[in-house]
Design a protein around this nucleic acid. Sequence first.
RNA 1: GCGUCGAUGGUGGAGUGGUCUAUCACAACAGACUGUAAAUCUGUCGCCUUCGGGCUUCGUAGGUUCGAAUCCUACUCGACGCACCA
Length: 402
Amino acid sequence: MLYWRIRMVNIDTNGDKIEELLSRGVEDCFVKEDLKKELLSGRQLRVKFGIDPTGPKIHIGRAIPLRKLRQFQLLGHQIVLIIGDFTAQIGDPSDKLAKRPMLTREVIEENMRDYKAQIGKIIDIDKVEFVYNSDWLRPLGFQEICQLAESFTVQQMIARRNFSERIEKGEEVSLRELLYPLMQGYDSVAINADVEIGGFDQLFNLKAGRYIQKHYGKKEQNVLTIEMLEGTDGRKMSTSWGNIITIVDEPEDMYGKIMSLRDDLIIKYFTLTTDLSLLEIMGIEKAIKGGENPKLHKMRLAREIVTMYHSEKAAAKAEEQFESVFAKGALPETMIEIKLPVLDVASELKSLKVIESKSEWTRLIKENAVSIHEGEVISDAKWLPKESCVLRIGKRRFVRFV
RNA sequence: GCGUCGAUGGUGGAGUGGUCUAUCACAACAGACUGUAAAUCUGUCGCCUUCGGGCUUCGUAGGUUCGAAUCCUACUCGACGCACCA
């Protein structure tokens, strides 16, 4: 009896939580008042988020919108994740000033494989509705597409910045790219979205959803754009810069990367990537401004993040190792080993890729960068180890002779 | 198809006949300092070396010249314009 009750959900309408949901890490909220009203109404909202299945690894920047979804989920709202398998094949012009190549079906499948396991670290996957937008986009015929295209004028479309810029510069903008926002907007119609979340670069696409929903006689979705997070060195996050932290990084690795974060980003990282209360974060900010050692707070940040994606235990262990290796200069647990009768250290190291060339070796020697662990500095490029020992090159490279 | 312009070290980007391993910035590496792999400062940053020096780089292949990243020719790739579609 009363089976349907099982499906009913309690919606949390706590005003403070809603306020935080609407502001923390949020770049822009459109229409804020309406969304607030909806959240307070006690109705379960359908929250849309599009997953671009091109990037297989989730880094902590990409995790921010997911964490925002989590907040919605904790209040009891329904998350709908749209796997953009169809749109990804078309290619999104959003943040790229260049055209993107079409992706093959196989590549998308490949990318999607461990995606779900990753997002499961952040949101409760069992409560999430997963949909593929090829389900409704692929069957559309030309007639329907024309009807859809009726929702936008060319003027509206080319007013978009990264189209207009390219047109001005005389670069080409393919018709296909103009179609992209229509498809993403149509997704909102297909799933009856009440709210859509996206990065700030998605603003145009998100708002397109509103036009298109209206065109189809539906209520317009509210839009929440999320702040972008800089990489550990302060530049834009990018795999090729090597400044990203993925949520599947090993604990030690994750911890170390966070410790190399620039001091001025500590507060932003706390705000966007942890669950610490805003009050507490303000306290930290004040403490650092008051001259407290930022290192301590950065360690706290590293602990929080590692705990979130691994465990408290892993975080403690990572911290311990970090302290012993970097702060106290102890040896790492594993290092490259070379069997002892060695005739030429430089070429040996070169073949093991410890150094790039013999010239580099000569330079390192000149810079007093090579030493026997807890022993003398080596100043002769032709030095040979007589007995087992550990060679330290710079701060981070260690080689053991056995 | 025709035409114009461009291609330089991990990246961006100078250099238009010799003084060019090639300005500069970023990245990277090392040293000092420290609060950590942060910040800052200093140095290094093609390869090999008996440390004297030697050798090799500027899209590819030739050519001119005593001498080329720099001039000429061909080719490859890229950007743009024009033509075709009408």
